[in-house]
Design a protein around this nucleic acid. Structure first.
Lengths: 123, 123
DNA sequence: GGGAAGACTGGCCACCCGGCCAGTTTCGCA
DNA sequence: TGCGAAACTGGCCGGGTGGCCAGTCTTCCC
C-alpha cells in the first residue's frame, strides 16, 4: 500500500480530559499519513492539552516584578539584579518579597518554579 | 453542515521543524471535526515537537542527586531536604554542590532552571 | 485635597547558602 | 587486594537571603 519514502507521522497523546482524548484518537485514526504512537514508541510530535481547571487566573504581576523574576530565573543574585536594573539591593528585595507573596512561594527557587509552571515565564 | 452540540476541536501547532509542521497542517486541515487555531485563538490542544537537535547529551546524575534535585525544585531548603531524605544537612550540601557543578549553575535556583530546560526534571 | 498603588530606599537581624577543609563507610571492579 | 566512585558527616566562615521596621516620590483616580 505504500508508495515511496514518506512514512506516517507518528503522534502521541497527552490529554488530561478523557473525552477529548477519545475524540481526538478517533478522528486521527482515520487520517491517511498519520498514525498514533504505539506504547513506548517515540513519536514525531505530541498532542498536549493542559487541563483548564489547572490554570485558573493569571497572577497580576507588575512590570518591575516581571523584570526581577526574569533575572531570578537566570540565577542572578539580588546584587546582580540590582546592578542590571540600576536600582538598590533593597528595592530588589522588596520586589522579590512581593513575588514570593503573589506566587505563594517559600523562596526564590520555588518562585521561579511556580512561575514556570503557570506559564508566567519561559525557561 | 452542522448537526448539534459538538464544535470542532481546535488544535494549535508548535513545531520546530517547518517541514513537519507543514505536513501536519495539510493533513489535519482535511479532517472533519478538527480545526487549526486561528492566530491568538485558544486551542483545545497543542501539537508540540521538540527538536531532537536541541537536547544533545544527558547529564550523568546519580540517584541521590536526582532525589535532591527534585526536592530543590519543590522549593525545599537544605534542612527540609535533609529531613525528607534522612541525611544530614552537610550531605545535602555535598549533593547540591555536585549538582551545581554538573549543571553548570551558579546557585540552586539556576540549577533547577537548567535542569528543567534540559528535561532532567519536570516542573 | 485625599487616598491608593507602585517604585524606590534605608537599617537591622536571624537564618540559609555555598565553598573550603577534613574525614568515614560501602560497594563494585580490575 | 587495592582502588575509585558514591554516599555520608563534621567544622568553619563569608556572603546571600528573606522578613521586619521605617520612610520618600510619583501617578492615577475619586
Amino acid at each position: 500500500m505504500s508508495e515511496d519514502t514518506t512514512p506516517d507521522i507518528v503522534l502521541s497523546l497527552e490529554i488530561d480530559d478523557p473525552a477529548l482524548a477519545d475524540r481526538l484518537a478517533t478522528l486521527l485514526g482515520n487520517v491517511a499519513g498519520l498514525r498514533l504512537a504505539a506504547p513506548g514508541e517515540t513519536a514525531n510530535a505530541t498532542i498536549v492539552a493542559r487541563d483548564p481547571r489547572v490554570m485558573p487566573e493569571d497572577i497580576p504581576l507588575t512590570q518591575r516584578e516581571l523584570d526581577v523574576l526574569a533575572l531570578m530565573a537566570e540565577g542572578a543574585s539580588n546584587k546582580m539584579i540590582a546592578r542590571q536594573l540600576n536600582i538598590s539591593v533593597h528595592t530588589v528585595k522588596f520586589h522579590v518579597g512581593s513575588l514570593l507573596d503573589k506566587l505563594d512561594a517559600t523562596g526564590r527557587t520555588d518562585a521561579v518554579a511556580h512561575a514556570a509552571r503557570r506559564g508566567v515565564i519561559e525557561l
